[in-house]
């Protein structure tokens, strides 16, 4: 039985929920079981928005995940809150444009992605969530690169300019994470 859980967390408006939903859709594309669950618990207080996605080869039990394997954090309060809970051996994707600290954990793979900088360079700061999602998939391969690209085309194909930008930043995030991981392995 193979199951992956990941929490996306940040401020409201950073596209957290959408990123999580896209991953869930990608899981469905690959014939997997998925659950997407939004901020729903006492932790909702305090202004951070988060959602958790479970992707599994078999029937999913608890939709509530307190200790995920993956964490994608868009702001500092989210890192402070969720990083200690990530399972050993897990992965943390940090938006280093907005977060000037790290988790201080040496039992996880932590990848610093300057997502806001990449987004601004690409021309739209709203694409931060797509960069982070691309990076997460690049680091974990929970779903394949091709599935992710197909899904972005399907869900965001209405406006051609926007689609091309999204495809570009997803690809950038994906490869950024891949090379960061390679660098870690070498080091």
């Amino acid at each position: 039985m193979s199951q992956y859980e990941v929490t996306f967390a940040g401020f409201g408006g950073q596209g957290i929920m959408t990123a999580g939903q896209l991953l869930a859709y990608a899981g469905i594309h690959e014939g997997k079981q998925v659950v997407w669950i939004p901020s729903y618990g006492p932790e909702m207080r305090g202004g951070t928005a988060y959602c958790t996605v479970v992707v599994s080869d078999s029937r999913i039990g608890s939709p509530i995940i307190n200790t995920p394997l993956g964490l994608v954090v868009f702001n500092r309060p989210s890192l402070e809150k969720f990083a200690p809970r990530v399972k050993p051996g897990g992965t943390i994707i940090v938006n280093s444009s907005l977060i000037d600290i790290t988790s201080n954990r040496n039992d996880v793979a932590e990848i610093l992605v300057p997502a806001n900088d990449i987004a601004i360079k690409a021309g739209n700061v709203k694409t931060v969530n797509m960069i982070m999602l691309g990076a997460f998939v690049g680091a974990t391969e929970v779903v394949s690169y091709n599935t992710l690209i197909e899904l972005v085309k399907e869900k965001m194909g209405k406006k051609k300019d926007l689609l091309e930008m999204n495809l570009q930043v997803v690809d950038e995030g994906y490869h950024f994470a891949k090379s960061a991981l390679r660098a870690k392995v070498k080091a």
Binding site: A24, Q33, V34, V35, I37
Partner: peptide, 10 residues
Amino acid sequence: DGMIGQMMEP
């Protein structure tokens, strides 16, 4: 419970 209403599943 509230989770049934709020969560997304296929």
